[in-house]
Design a protein around this nucleic acid. Structure first.
Length: 488
RNA sequence: GCUGCUAUAGUGUAGUCCGGCCAAUCAUGCGGGCCUUUCACGCCCGCGACUGGGGUUCGAAUCCCCAUAGCAGCACCA
């Protein structure tokens, strides 16, 4: 009865149907291993994952490491860790750097079909021609010559910057972005961390099409910054006679308050501005995890946002709300006293009190707080001189009097009803003799305080500091506890 | 400059394809109340939006045109 009444009647948003998905789908998440995943990645990762789970099928993790300049060797591991944390249902993993020969072979075929040519023009010159809708001389080379040049390229007969394989599109296309885009280039340095001998690399538009086709990808969900790429890629599909997947492009997601740029993060870490990839001022998934945001909350927030094509601004409030729904029922309650002030209660009986670890679950047990006269209180609660009655939570009432600005507290009875009637604030406190130093880290700075000794048993878990907010217990040492503020 | 995408409350989202049931959904946020030894959770009430202008129509958030705004692409990045 009670349960029925308290049941939520919230309608979880369902993602729109995908066409041609009834018999299952093959989808992919394709990050570039340049650093850990952040909230922006989570959207693509979760949306694709949700569709695979809805329709059934395969979910491929494709590591897109075809630009050695943008590969961080460590990221191969961090990306996988982040994906594991997110709980994606990955069914297989491929590395594009393992597949260079496949791309070379397909390029040969594409050239053979007259769908691409090897261009040795100067880049600036080509750009001018492109803007003027003019063909460069290389475009008219016969297939045989292109094939010969391609083999020369593979034999390292060209240095970096001397040659580009271009896909033949439509030079008259009104969108300059569509005209004969590049597919391969030579890179002499840096060496690829996994393939040190490689020097001919595909560009994203080629390797993506090759793999989407080879791996049987049926549906692609990605940001609308890829709309132009989708159009470009269609030219390759047409040249090769391949079936085009179903595409969905969601809108841009603006995220305020955190750093997302991999290069900025890396620089900040190097310079010591940030403590690491999980610094809570960063928007990485590991930073969220460190603060006590659960992967399910990220997932739910992303599903609520959906695949709309509208540009949106990411709402931390909405993410926090999702997180709170999950965390509130499981987080144990403790007292944390920020900015503690020591004070002795006059005329008070000594007594040991108990408070529930969770107000909705008595079975979880209680914390024990022994009052022997001296306590610490949040300084902020003593600043208001108009308050005469204060309720010490789970203990008793006290009256506050101020003598030249110094507060004096005296025992004022046990009646909770009285405290309520007087609209007395109910304040958390700690016995002076039984507290541990606790630093609460927030993106805005550290809050120094004290918490219950039992918090030391909650390492790695999220607790609720009553009246303060949720926090993840990050470390426990002889010096005390360090907690990261999650949200209110 | 050229090309394209988008436009519903503070934020996210439903409705837009197939005009009327939309004086517009749900969540979040905010305000108020109830409950309660937390300012958490839960419950109740309230606040708050169809970018602007034309047109089509008996009727438009939904269709058409123009304007405006935001975003993206025009890399030997993904």
């Amino acid at each position: 009865m009670i349960a029925a009444l308290s049941e939520k009647h919230e309608h979880r948003k369902v993602l729109p149907e995908l066409e041609d998905a009834k018999d299952g789908v093959v989808m992919r998440f394709a990050p570039n291993p340049s650093g850990p995943l952040h909230i922006g990645h989570a959207r693509a990762a979760v949306l694709n994952d949700a569709y695979v789970k809805t329709y059934g099928g395969r979910y491929i993790l494709r590591i897109e490491d075809t630009d050695p300049k943008r590969v961080d060797p460590e990221a191969y591991e961090t990306v996988v860790e982040d994906i594991k944390w997110l709980g994606l249902g990955i069914t297989e993993t491929v590395y594009q750097s393992d597949r260079l020969d496949l791309y070379y072979d397909l390029c040969r075929q594409l050239i053979g079909r007259g769908g691409a040519y090897v261009c040795t023009c100067d880049n600036e010159r080509f750009k001018e021609l492109k803007m003027a809708k003019q063909a460069c001389p290389c475009r008219e080379q016969p297939v045989e010559q292109n094939l010969a040049l391609w083999e020369k390229m593979l034999a390292h007969g060209f240095m970096e910057g001397e040659v580009t394989v271009r896909v033949k599109t439509d030079l008259m296309h009104p969108d300059p972005a569509m005209r004969d885009f590049p597919a391969f280039r030579v890179l002499d340095s840096p060496p690829h961390p996994r393939k040190p001998d490689a020097f001919v690399y595909p560009l994203m538009n080629f390797s993506v099409v090759a793999d989407d086709h080879l791996l049987g990808v049926t549906h692609v969900i990605r940001g609308k910054d890829h709309i132009a790429n989708t159009r470009r890629q269609r030219y390759i599909y047409d040249h090769m006679g391949w079936k085009v997947p179903v595409y969905r492009h969601y809108g841009r997601m603006g995220i305020e308050g955190v750093v997302l740029s991999t290069s900025q993060m890396r620089l900040g870490i190097k310079e010591g501005t940030y403590t690491g990839w999980d610094d809570i001022r960063l928007g990485t998934l590991r930073a969220l995890a460190r603060r006590g945001i659960l992967p399910e909350a990220v997932r739910n927030a992303m599903l609520a946002i959906g695949i709309g094509e509208t540009d949106i601004s990411f709402s931390w409030d909405n993410l926090y709300s999702e997180n709170k729904k999950i965390i509130d029922p499981i987080a144990n309650r403790y007292f944390f006293v920020p900015d503690p002030v020591t004070i002795t209660i006059r005329a008070a009986p000594q007594l040991t009190t108990h408070a529930l670890l969770h107000p909705a679950d008595e079975k979880r047990g209680v914390r024990t707080l022994a009052f022997t006269g001296a306590i610490v209180l949040p300084a902020a609660e003593l600043g208001d001189r108009t308050r005469s009655l204060i309720r010490l939570k789970d203990l008793f009432n006290v009256t506050a009097e101020y003598d030249h600005g110094r507060p004096h507290l005296s025992y004022a009875g046990d009646s909770l009803a009285e405290a309520r009637a007087a609209k007395a604030p109910i304040v958390q406190w700690l016995p002076v003799a039984d507290q541990v130093p606790c630093t609460l880290r927030t993106p805005e700075g550290d809050i120094i305080g004290a918490c219950e000794p039992a918090v030391r048993n909650e390492l790695g878990k999220v607790v609720q500091f009553e009246r303060v907010g949720f926090a993840r217990i990050d470390s426990v040492t002889d010096d005390g506890v360090v907690a990261y503020f999650t949200h209110k």
